[in-house]
């Protein structure tokens, strides 16, 4: 995303997919659109989840590329 941290105020719990459509990359594309052409992984409160997972108003959400440790 080219950004390390971002605070988003949610009025109600939502899904990861909905959250991804609220976040724009520097090129103007939403994270949701970008994830059609590249793999973007998501963790909610430090657990790996898919797009249907719920995000609460206090959740810590992380988006990152596929992992390459080891």
């Amino acid at each position: 995303m080219g950004q390390s941290e971002l605070e988003i105020l949610l009025e109600a719990p939502t899904t990861v997919a909905a959250l991804k459509s609220m976040i724009k990359l520097p090129n103007g594309e939403t994270l949701n659109a970008a994830s059609r052409t590249q793999t973007i992984m998501t963790a909610v409160d430090q657990e790996m989840v898919d797009d249907s997972a719920m995000v609460s108003v206090t959740s810590e959400v992380a988006f990152f590329p596929p992992v390459t440790g080891g």
Binding site: A43, M48, F64, P65, P66, V67, T68, G69, G70
Partner: peptide
Amino acid sequence: IMDYLKTNATFWK
């Protein structure tokens, strides 16, 4: 453990 670590653990190089 190694195979899971390579694909599931959040490390980036």
